[in-house]
């Protein structure tokens, strides 16, 4: 039961990209198309699951001072295996598109982060579930970004061109003209920024709604916009001060480290 919870908790509540803000480099670089995103997520998940299990198995034998070095060696070993496997299995185009980001899984902070935060403290089965859950979360995040970028940026879906929809002689949906920049570097930043904003909007709404239900007596503080350069007001002003700004700090969901790990 609790093992299943290790898995089901991860994809949404601890989503590696949108909640923990880890593994940004591959997220932005390979999401030009759905195929690339899925291949990247599969490769990362394979390394994550294997590394999690092995690190959890050896966690009692590794001296504390050199644990990070040991984890890196374990991860690098699995990355090499996945690299060779990808060369053998995946089509040439995908290998070319992912390029250096397959060997760069070795410095992906999701994997080292899970090794340090989870696998070094839990048993192999729980670590397996954790790896799968985080991997599914990574897959969902990459699919969400890649979907937007491929459909809007290239006018294709899983490689198939979107064609105009016609009913008889009339065109219901005309031929889509792609916004090419979304497939290029700037588009990656902008799409992921807007998605972050969307999720934080949804998160804020939910939290506000939950708070209204929980403490209906507390009056809401007016004002949607932050007053810049001001410390949050005293607790006296409306309890938790729901719309009090915290300038230059990310707003979305709760379990967030103070800074993205490098």
């Amino acid at each position: 039961m609790s093992l299943l919870k290790e898995f089901t908790d991860k994809p949404f509540k601890h989503n590696p990209v949108f909640v923990l803000v880890l593994g940004l480099c591959p997220t932005l670089a390979v999401t030009t198309s759905l195929k690339n995103g899925v291949a990247m997520a599969a490769a990362t998940t394979a390394v994550l699951v294997c590394a999690n299990i092995l690190i959890s198995l050896i966690r009692r034998f590794v001296p504390n001072q050199i644990r990070i070095a040991c984890y890196i060696v374990v991860i690098a070993g699995f990355v090499t295996m996945v690299e060779i496997a990808m060369k053998a299995i995946a089509p040439e185009a995908i290998n070319k598109a992912l390029g250096i980001f397959i060997p760069l899984i070795v410095v992906n902070c999701i994997i080292l982060g899970r090794a340090e935060a989870f696998a070094s403290k839990h048993g192999p089965l729980a670590s397996l579930m954790d790896g799968l859950g985080i991997g599914v979360g990574f897959l969902l995040a990459l699919v969400a970004i890649a979907l937007v970028r491929e459909v809007l940026g290239a006018g294709t879906l899983w490689g198939y061109r979107l064609t105009p929809v016609t009913v008889g002689p009339t065109t219901v949906i005309p031929q889509y003209v792609p916004i090419t920049v979304l497939g290029m570097a700037p588009g990656a930043f902008i799409v992921i920024g807007l998605l972050f904003g969307l999720f934080s909007l949804v998160g804020n709404r939910r939290r506000d709604a939950a708070r209204l239900v929980a403490v209906p007596a507390v009056p809401q503080v007016a004002g949607d916009f932050p007053k810049p350069k001001k410390k949050p007001a005293d607790k006296a002003e409306g309890g938790e001060a729901p719309s009090e700004p915290r300038p230059s700090e990310p707003q979305p969901s709760e379990p967030r480290p103070p800074e993205p790990r490098p």
Binding site: G193, P228, P245, P250
Partner: peptide, 21 residues
């Protein structure tokens, strides 16, 4: 940090969009 940014975009989202520009 000194500008009015819509609440949902504060922090990381607006940083990403600036990086995009």
């Amino acid at each position: 940090a000194e500008r009015r940014v819509p609440k949902a975009l504060q922090g990381l989202p607006i940083a990403f969009i600036s990086a995009g520009l």
